[in-house]
Nucleic acid binder design. Structure first.
Length: 571
RNA sequence: UACCCCGUGGUGUAAUCGGUAACACGUCUGACUCUGACUCAGACAUCCCAGGUUCGAGUCCUGGCGGGGUAACCA
């Protein structure tokens, strides 16, 4: 395992609480199982983009291996060419690396097709598998009813011949299957003579047309684990019922040391969906702009949104691993990002909804470059100079012609601080004749408060960010809200589509936002804190030097908005 | 319906051989503050229910109740 190079906000493995899987691995090592070795694997099927739920599995598999000096492989579970594509193979590798992990070996289940087939012939010879002529419907019904297939007692020689003819392409797709001969009366459905091979003529992204026979998940997965020497095969809960079959196959092929399958609960998150099928629908039906739409819970979407690998890893560490089906609150994810970025994102002043301010007693044409702290949480980040002048922009939200007394911002007669600038007092304002909205605010400044401190130590409650009108850069800013309007979008009555729960206001783009000039050198990799707003980054795909587009990753906590919302709420 | 798994504060997790509920986030209070941010302090749990074993049970046993998964030639 190679450790990620960058610093982790997650205080590297300090007294991490052991989950039941780590507990189990620890016990296995103490018992000397597998000679104390630990080899895990992350086994995605290349049929979609990775999402935050996969991050949980990646952090578990790679993280666990790293903690105990073990190894972890990346293995593509490419046994169903009809849904898989190379595009996904590339994106998955990029996403795993971006998250901060490097695999010890890269494999494909298709690497093992020949070996798997050889084993299948062995099982046939030993009478542990047979060729079944039942069609899909009959087969399913037979398994449900626990009824033996009429082909179950076919002789080994005939089975072997038929299997070879299947492989040679003599039969139509779906005409026959190879089935394990286990127990049609087993209470566990998976043991009722499960299918090992189906005939499927689909070009495979790696093996091309060399096979018209593809192994099922059950017949490929444990065997792949065994071939790689996996010690702990960690998967999600829905495979729990498959474990007896996993173990049966391993015994049948006679591996010396069995990998141990362990299941954990997959991640559920509020206000989004985390199933590949549903995410694929969002993309295919054009409800989002693509897999990397910043509202998507995909790793590529989160990356574009402004999430950092550190934040995602911190999130995965915080949510833990268990067998209980649970739903994690989205704020947990957002908070992991805030915690990460608060410590390292440079601060910058940006006015999203500009309102013009004129300082009546400030000399026209004068410009002062005032010193601003880049990151109060990190003195090493230093300072920068921001230009100040007679005309500024402030946030529309920061002025009210009429306001309650707990409104600390600018209102007639009230003094506030312009961050790193001066104290100013509102002396007047102008309204738009048509809309009644303020279009200009007049203030007077106190020259003695340069830099934002008053010599007489008088206090002002409010501090506003601002941008000099003469120096402002312009940009568009994209603000995203939850993709779905309900916490559990999949909870819909029968007949109702979960897409009905999409949030129609999940995407908003502000134009004409005013930025301090230092942002001229912004890069897509850099995350900024727009003071009093949140964390933002340049959109890696749509921003242009001549037309900047910033993306908000997450807003700052907003106690004032919460307070006001509460007071304004109807009684 | 059958089989399997699970059930600890609002949420997500923890509690080595049974010893008297911990951590994170959230929420509410308050303090601090040149970001109504950050930070800091305090508050918030009848451990699903009912019996049983025990000096003592979230932990063990029995029976309920509740939730989830599976019942593809998907993974």
């Amino acid at each position: 395992m190679t450790a990620p190079q960058e610093s982790s906000p997650a205080a590297p493995e300090e007294a991490r609480r052991a989950d039941f899987i780590r507990e189990r691995v620890r016990a296995d090592r103490e018992a000397g199982k597998h000679g104390g070795a630990v080899l895990t694997r992350f086994p995605p099927e290349p049929n979609g983009y990775l999402h935050i739920g996969h991050a949980k599995s990646i952090c578990l598999n790679f993280g666990l291996a790293r903690e105990v000096g073990g190894r972890c492989n990346l293995r593509f579970d490419d046994t169903n060419p009809s849904t898989e594509d190379e595009e996904y193979v590339h994106s998955i590798q990029a996403d795993v690396r971006w998250l901060g992990f490097e695999w010890d070996a890269l494999y494909y289940a298709s690497d093992y097709f020949a070996q798997l087939y050889a084993w299948a012939e062995e099982l046939v010879t030993k009478g542990q598998a047979y060729v079944c002529d039942l069609g899909g419907e009959e087969l399913r019904e037979g398994r449900g009813a626990g009824k033996n297939s009429p082909y179950r007692e076919r002789g080994a020689a005939e089975n072997l011949e038929l299997l070879r003819r299947m492989r040679a392409g003599e039969f139509a797709d779906g005409a026959r299957t190879l089935r394990a001969k286990i127990d049609m009366a087993a209470p566990n459905m998976n043991l009722r003579d499960p299918v090992m091979y189906r005939i499927l003529r689909a070009p495979h992204h790696r093996t091309g047309n060399t096979w018209c026979l593809y192994p099922t998940y059950d017949w490929a997965h444990g065997e792949s684990d065994a071939l790689e020497g996996i010690t702990h095969s960690i998967c999600t809960l829905e495979f729990e019922n498959h474990r007896p079959l996993y173990e049966w196959f391993l015994r049948a092929i006679g591996v010396a040391q069995q990998p141990q399958q362990i299941e954990f609960a997959r991640l559920n998150l509020t206000y989004t969906v985390l199933s590949k099928r549903k995410l694929l629908r969002l993309v295919k039906e054009g409800r989002v702009s693509g897999w990397d739409d910043p509202r998507m819970p995909t790793l590529s979407g989160l990356r574009r949104r402004g999430y950092t690998p550190e934040a995602l890893r911190l999130f995965c560490e915080r949510i833990g691993v268990a067998k209980f089906n649970s739903t994690v609150d989205m704020v947990q994810l957002e908070n992991a990002l805030r915690d990460d970025l608060n410590k390292r994102a440079p601060r910058v002043m940006v006015v999203l909804n500009p309102l013009r301010v004129v300082i009546e007693n400030y000399p026209a044409g004068e410009v002062e470059w005032l010193e601003a702290v880049n990151n109060p949480e990190d003195p090493a980040a230093g300072t920068r100079k921001v230009p100040f002048g007679r005309e500024l922009f402030i946030e529309r939200e920061d002025f009210r012609s009429e306001a309650p007394k707990n409104y600390w911002r600018l209102k007639p007669g009230q003094e506030v601080r312009l961050r790193y600038g001066y104290y100013v007092t509102c002396t007047g304002f102008e309204l738009d004749a048509a809309t009644g909205e303020p279009v200009l605010v007049r203030v007077r400044y106190d020259p003695a408060t340069r830099g934002g401190d008053s010599p007489d130590k008088r206090k002002v409650k409010g501090t506003l960010h601002w941008v000099s009108a003469a120096h402002a850069l312009e940009a568009d800013v994209r603000l995203c809200e939850h993709l779905f309007r309900t916490a559990h979008p999949e909870d819909v009555p029968a007949g109702v589509d979960f897409l009905d729960n999409l949030n129609p206001d999940s995407l908003r783009v502000l134009t004409g936002c005013k930025l301090e000039p230092s942002l001229a050198t912004a890069t897509a990799e850099q995350r900024y804190q727009f003071e009093r707003h949140g964390y933002f980054c340049l959109d890696a795909r749509d921003s242009r030097p001549e037309h900047l587009l910033f993306q908000r990753a997450v807003a700052l906590r907003d106690t004032w908005a919460k307070l006001e919302h509460k007071e304004g709420a109807p009684k």
